[in-house]
Amino acid sequence: MAESIPQVSVVSQKDIRIVEFTNNKILDEGNITEIGTTLKSLIDEAGKPKLLLDFSNVDHLSSAALGMLINVNTEIKKKDGQLRLANIKPQIFEVFVITKLNKLFKIKATRPEALTSFDD
């Protein structure tokens, strides 16, 4: 059945777009594509995009979701932007550690910590 609920909610704080995943699972290809499209549009609309991804609600993700996040990171870097990840639960953080993506992404414990970590 088609998922009608948006996969993310977006709020702005100054020039930072804060994206919160609304679904507790980032697994289905369709959902991942939808999230990727939303994030891409946020990257496209900014000169030097600043994105904060809030994982508070996320209990499960797949390697396809990691692939999407890597793409997002690459696109942001191309535009000299900044990406932060925050509020990742310990089980999910372990997935980042196993794949060594904790070294690729800038991961902060909390949203305020992530917000203050952006360079002007």
Partner: peptide
Amino acid sequence: PTLRENVEKCSGRGILL
């Protein structure tokens, strides 16, 4: 996929996990 030269590639993580 954990090697430096592959870490930004989007595949190969399923098997690793």
